[in-house]
């Protein structure tokens, strides 16, 4: 259903975009169809100002405290965190694999960079995902145009900078089309 627009008080600091935070959890081992993926996505909340973001964030469990196979998805309002969304159909994502213990700090640095428009790639960013897995954690940044090499390079460089990743850290770019085939 359609949600009402997000109101902002004049004393709050407006963000460039409004965002929605989603949560999903899948049973390990089970194949996820598109339909069940959609049904697993739960909207936690929305915000359009810095103050509203902190109001929501401060009530959340830190990613490192989430159970295995859980994801948080922070996407611009109007873009569902699914390949099938129109904004994602020609897109892709940067994938950063993190050893255990780093995810909460990296996720916070990533979303602050996204909300503060630190990526400087115009309208290209769709959202970010943090995935808690058994042996490692994964964070991803989704963008609209996988074929735009300048944009994907800039996102990679910004990620390295804001996450303080060593040059050796493994980063991989995958188009959503490739992901669909797997």
């Amino acid at each position: 259903g359609l949600l009402p627009p997000i109101e902002i008080n004049p004393n709050e600091h407006k963000l460039q975009y409004a965002y929605a935070l989603w949560y999903s959890r899948r049973s390990p081992g089970k194949q996820t169809s598109i339909q069940s993926y959609d049904q697993n996505l739960k909207l936690i909340g929305r915000f359009a100002s810095v103050e509203q973001f902190w109001g929501l964030y401060s009530h959340l469990v830190r990613p490192s405290e989430l159970t295995t196979h859980t994801d948080f998805h922070l996407f611009k309002v109007g873009i569902k965190p699914m390949w099938e969304d129109e904004a994602n159909q020609k897109g892709g994502k940067w994938i950063v694999r993190l050893r255990k213990g780093l995810v909460s700090r990296c996720w916070e640095n990533l979303i602050l960079a996204m909300l503060g428009e630190q990526f400087m790639v115009g309208e290209e960013i769709c959202g970010a995902v943090v995935s808690i897995r058994f042996q490692e954690d994964i964070i991803c940044v989704w963008n609209k145009t996988a074929s735009d090499v300048a944009t994907t390079a800039r996102i990679r460089d910004t990620l390295r900078r804001v996450l303080h990743l060593p040059a050796s850290a493994s980063m991989e770019y995958k188009t959503h089309n490739e992901s669909l085939k797997n």
Binding site: V50, E51, G55, S58, N109, L115, G116, Q118
Partner: peptide, 21 residues
């Protein structure tokens, strides 16, 4: 229009403002 850009430190400072809670 102008893009609304916020540095990390600025965002962190607003974390404890009364309207952020």
């Amino acid at each position: 229009g102008t893009r609304i850009v916020y540095e990390r430190a600025f965002l962190m400072n607003l974390r404890n403002s009364p309207i952020s809670r």
